[in-house]
Amino acid sequence: MNHTTTEEAKKAAKPLTPKINELIERSKSVLLATVNAEGTPNSSYAPFVHIDKAFYILVSFMAKHTQNLADGRKTSVMIIEDESATKQIYARERLTFEATTTNVERDSETWNAVVGKLREAHGKVVDVIADMKDFILIGLHPVKGSYVNGFGSAYFVNENLEILEHRNDQNHQSK
């Protein structure tokens, strides 16, 4: 089986950056992987909006992941193609990145703008939960990550979610 060379993959990588943006635009929630103070992992999800290179989520302290996010612990974020839309379950399109977190001050200019965008994206329920005192607004800021667009099509991405290079110069190997 003849696979694409690393140089060919690098040349083909740039057109994939818009595909990352399309995946983000098609998605309504992010998957979250966090750890608590003892290092115990927790996975969850949250609806989001993407504004100025950050992903914003409105989350409750009743959820385990919220304290982990608020404390600025290690966080991994994934946006993944819907199972019902994929042609191949083993090769779902996905963007995964490490992120730093920021807490957005309630009733600040940023809070009001982002909550407005969340309302536009996810409906009036946002008004209800934004008024609850246990909900906080967290910014997720990409550091580095990867984008997968099928078998042998995996790329490193930077903090701006731009393709850097092909992730595996050896590709998948047959027996």
Rank of each mutant, 00 (worst) to 15 (best):
T75L: 12
T75C: 15
T75F: 11
T75R: 12
S76M: 14
S76W: 06
S76E: 14
V77T: 08
V77G: 06
V77R: 02
M78Y: 02
M78C: 11
M78I: 13
M78E: 03
I79G: 10
E81K: 04
E81A: 11
E81F: 03
D82V: 06
D82E: 15
E83I: 10
S84G: 06
S84R: 13
A85K: 14
A85M: 12
T86W: 01
T86D: 01
T86G: 00
T86V: 04
K87I: 01
K87E: 09
K87G: 13
Q88N: 15
Q88D: 15
I89K: 12
I89E: 07
I89Q: 10
I89R: 07
A91H: 04
A91F: 05
A91C: 05
A91N: 08
A91M: 04
R92C: 06
R92F: 07
R92K: 14
R92I: 11
R92M: 07
R92L: 10
E93F: 03
E93V: 14
E93L: 11
R94F: 06
R94W: 06
R94L: 08
R94I: 14
R94S: 11
L95P: 03
L95F: 04
T96H: 07
T96L: 13
T96I: 14
T96K: 09
F97A: 01
F97P: 00
F97M: 04
A99C: 07
T100G: 13
T100Q: 15
T100M: 13
T100F: 13
T100L: 13
T100A: 15
T101K: 02
T101H: 03
T101M: 09
T101V: 04
T101D: 03
T101E: 07
T101Q: 07
T101I: 06
T101P: 00
T102V: 08
T102L: 15
N103G: 08
N103L: 15
N103A: 14
N103F: 08
N103V: 15
V104F: 04
